[in-house]
Design a binder for these strands. Sequence first.
DNA 1: GCCTGTGAACTCGTTCACAGCC
DNA 2: GGCTGTGAACGAGTTCACAGGC
Lengths: 220, 220
Amino acid sequence: MSLLRSNFDVNSISALTIGRLSIYLRCVERLLSLGIETVSSQQLARRFNLNPAQIRKDFAYFGEFGVRGVGYNVKELRSYLREILGLDREHRLVIVGVGNLAMALANYSRFTGESFLIVGMLDADPRKIGMKTPNGLMVEDAGRLLEIVSQRNVEIGVITTPASSAQKICDEMVASGLRTILNFAPVQVKAPESVLVRSVDLRVYLEELAFYLTHGIPES
Amino acid sequence: MSLLRSNFDVNSISALTIGRLSIYLRCVERLLSLGIETVSSQQLARRFNLNPAQIRKDFAYFGEFGVRGVGYNVKELRSYLREILGLDREHRLVIVGVGNLAMALANYSRFTGESFLIVGMLDADPRKIGMKTPNGLMVEDAGRLLEIVSQRNVEIGVITTPASSAQKICDEMVASGLRTILNFAPVQVKAPESVLVRSVDLRVYLEELAFYLTHGIPES
DNA sequence: GCCTGTGAACTCGTTCACAGCC
DNA sequence: GGCTGTGAACGAGTTCACAGGC
C-alpha cells in the first residue's frame, strides 16, 4: 500500500529534489496521456539521464509510492506529485512590469493552467495602464500593488521590470505580504529570509553556452 | 601581476562556477558604471549571500586576478570575466518557434547586445512566415534551418516551440551542426553528448514556489 | 525473476584556516 | 592592518549495493 508522508521536514529537502519532482511530473503526465499505467524508476531515469536510485530517493522523502517488483502506478504517482508540489489548489499571482516577457507569460497557457492564475498585470508607466493583455486582464497601476495583493489573495509575485526598478518592486511585494517572488530582472534582489525569491536570469544561460562554445563542451 | 590562465581543463570546472561568473560579471559591470575601481571578494560575497572563499576559488580556476591586501581591479576583472565567458566576440543565434517568448527574447536588448546577435527567427506556420519581428527580422520557414545555420554562421539554437515539436527541432539543429542549444519548451530534449543542451522550464520555478507555499519556506 | 526503499560509500561542491603578499 | 590564493576539512548530493517484497 502506498502512502503520502505528511510529516517531512522541509529543511531537509533540497531545492534540487523539488525541481526534479516538477520535471518528473511533466513526464508522468505524458505517460498518462499515452495510456501507460506503470513506470519503474529505471524507465524514468533513462528519459532524464539520471540515476534510478536518485529518483527513488526523491520520492522516498514523501512516502512509499511504489510496489516492489512492479514500479509506480502512473496515475497515482501523478496525483502524489501534484499534491506534494501543492498543485492541487490554485495559486494566484501578480506580474509587475508589462513588457514582452510579461505578455509571453500571460499567454503561456500552462502558466495560467489549473494551478496558477494571473490576477493582475501591473505597470508604473501611465501609457500602459488600461491596456488590454492577452489573458483578458487590464494593465493596472503598479502603485496599487499592496491593495491588489490583499484584495485578490495573491500568493506569488512575478517581477518582469527592467533591472533598475526590480529591487523597489521586490521591496513593495515584501511589504504587501507576498512570501514567494519570481524575479526575471537580471539583478540579484534582496529580501528577508522569510521570503523566497527565485531569480531566472536568461543571460546566465546564454553566457554559459558562450563559455562552452569558447572552451569546448565537457565530456559526459 | 595578474594573468589569465589558458590551460585549464573544462571538465574540472562545474557549471555552477560558470553560472556564478556570469552573475559576478553583472555585478562588476554595475560597479564599473558607479565608478568603483576596486572590489574585494568579501564585498562581492555580501551582495550575493555567498562565501568569499567561493568567489576566490571560482576566479582561481582561470588565473590570479587579484592583488593581496587590496582586492580586484574592477575594470580588469570585467575584462577577464568577459574573456573567460567568451563574450569578447559575437555569437550568432537562431530562434525556432515564433511565439510570445521568442518576441520577448527578440526585444530583450541584452540578449541582442554586443555578444549575442539573433540572425534568424523561424517558424513552421505559413501564416507567421514573412511577419516582421521587433528586432527587424522577418520570420522565415523553419524548413530552411540547415541552410540558414551554415550560411549565417549560427552557433546557438534557441527552441521556443511548443513541447510537441521541440524534439524534432532539436534533432534538426543537431543535424545542421549546432553544438549549443537553449530549450524553453517544457520537455526534456535528447541530443548527442557532443551537443550541449540547456533547458529552461518556467513551470519548474513556479511549481517550486507552490511547493514552498504549501510546506513552508526553509530556514536560512 | 524484477523493482522498491535505504543505509553506506563515494563524489562533488563549499567553507575554513592560514601562508604569502601588499 | 587587509586581502588573495589554496590545501585541508567539511557537508551536501549522488550512486552503490543489497535487504525486503511482489
